[in-house]
């Protein structure tokens, strides 16, 4: 279990960026603030902002791929594949997603360890579930008990990304499934009339045309994904919420060069502004993408764009 192995507090070096930061007690307000905001722990906070952006950058394409796979499977003519796709889409509806986040992390972790246990320790005779304990042999632990700290952190992040991708993949599958059905039937009939195979119809006619129908749903999903990133905190990753709580708490002169009162409110205000900014930028970009995608499409917006040109 990576949670148990998490280090309590990484001791991060306190090398200062500015040369005048050697004795913070004597500084004026602006200089003190400049020094305060560039301490090692604040650098960790800025890195964790990078973690959030990295999570978005990895999760968005991966869950889009999962979603595409799910939607394609749900349309498949092979019955088991279709059932799988439909189940995947239906599974994530109706239940608070945060429950999935808490559930998947433990479940995935145990699934990996279980598989490794079966492969690596075939002659292990004790049961894996001993009452309330989940016991696998030492060689099957993930990451290995003697692995360095960064391995534990990376594994935790990996599990988080996989969980996000699974959950958002199901949402994306639902959106894409709807978008595929929204492509005008006449387009597909024309393709069939031209003698295209099922596969060709799918890749050459359906897929290029579905994006314009999928985009409103997908952009909504993107917004939701952006707003879901603070849940990383619940998955045990040292993310911005963790650091904001850590750094904002009241500090006494005994333990730090920069004593201050309880500033957590201001840290979370900064996070709030950060997310609002992210939303604002996304809204702008998605509006442009939509304008680009409607170009030349047989929809109302596409027709309006053609007339305007």
């Amino acid at each position: 279990m990576y949670r148990a192995a998490r280090a309590t507090d990484a001791s991060i070096g306190t090398t200062a960026i500015f040369s005048f930061c050697t004795d913070p007690g004597t500084l004026g307000d602006a200089a003190w603030m400049a020094c305060y905001l560039t301490t090692g722990k604040h650098m960790a906070l800025y890195w964790s902002v990078g973690t959030v952006l990295l999570l978005l950058a990895i999760t968005a394409p991966v869950s889009l791929a999962f979603g595409f796979g799910g939607a394609a499977a749900a349309r498949s003519s092979v019955a088991p594949l279709r059932w799988f796709g439909k189940t995947y889409i239906a599974l994530v509806r109706g239940v608070p997603d945060i429950a999935y986040f808490l559930f998947f992390v433990i479940a995935l972790d145990q699934a990996f360890e279980y598989v490794r246990h079966k492969v690596k320790c075939p002659d292990w005779d004790q049961p894996i579930r001993q009452g309330n304990d989940f016991v696998v042999c030492a060689a099957a632990k993930l990451p290995l008990g003697n692995a360095p700290q960064w391995m534990h952190e990376t594994y935790g992040f990996f599990l988080a990304v996989l969980t996000f991708a699974l959950v958002f993949g199901a949402f994306a599958a639902n959106v894409l499934y709807g978008a595929m059905r929204a492509v005008p039937r006449a387009q597909m009939e024309t393709a069939e009339a031209y003698g295209l195979t099922r596969r060709q119809c799918f890749w050459r006619i359906l897929v290029p045309q579905m994006w314009v129908f999928a985009l409103p749903g997908l952009s909504n999903l993107w917004m939701v994904l952006v707003k879901a990133t603070p849940l990383l905190f619940l998955l045990g990753v040292e993310d911005i919420v963790y650091w904001a709580r850590e750094l904002g708490g009241a500090k006494t002169p005994r333990f730090t060069d920069y004593p201050h009162g309880d500033w957590r409110m201001w840290y979370f205000l900064a996070l709030l502004v950060f997310y609002l900014f992210l939303t604002w930028v996304s809204e702008r970009v998605l509006a442009r993408v939509m304008a680009r995608l409607t170009h030349g499409q047989a929809t109302v917006a596409g027709e309006a764009a053609r007339k305007a040109a």
Partner: peptide, 22 residues
């Protein structure tokens, strides 16, 4: 509408809690 729809509820909770504590 923008402030409450544009930011995560999770962060809103945290911010509100520490605001009330202050």
């Amino acid at each position: 509408i923008f402030v409450f729809r544009g930011s995560p509820l999770f962060i809103q909770f945290f911010f509100a809690y520490f605001l009330f504590v202050a």
